[in-house]
Amino acid sequence: MTDQTPWDELDDDELMAALAQAVAEAGAVPDRRREAARAAFSWRTVDAELAELLHDSALDAGAAVRSGSAPGVDEPRTLSFGSGALALEVEVDGEVVMGQVVGPTPAPGAATVALQRAEGAEGGEGDEVVVEVDAAGFFRVEGVVSGPVRFVVRADGWALTSPWVVL
């Protein structure tokens, strides 16, 4: 029996052996990972307008080659999200996230950016850090650790929600 033997050519014992591997793989999924996947459903929102991830410098062709290691180590990673006329530009430098909201000029102090984190695969609670956007649209969040996050920009009359992305 090889990995590519057609099903019909496997005898019953061989098929059972293949099944055993398949079932064992499912059994080996850590509970924390299964729980995190189930809990993801609580982030379901029926009609949230979702921005697109337009650019991620981590995926630039050759980014890993140029720096010879992780692109984020030598130069900040940049991410761009967009939805219609709205855009969110984010720069990740270690645990500091700096960004700019580009779009309908928000009144000073009127716009906020929430950095949301889902219930961790490690069992940590989901959380949200909210910062204000300055008059020029800039914001800064510190102490951002790695893992999946998303950004929600809220202002009078509009909001922008980014897709989830691993920082």
Binding site: V29, A36, A40
Partner: peptide, 29 residues
């Protein structure tokens, strides 16, 4: 999980990828 292992991800990175995939699916559903 199998695809994450194929890519030689650590367990922690596999957790991050898995969670991101499911969160994305919630949005995509």
């Amino acid at each position: 999980g199998a695809i994450a292992r194929q890519h030689r991800l650590s367990e922690a990175d596999g957790d991050d990828v898995s969670q991101t995939v499911w969160l994305r699916l919630v949005e995509h559903l």
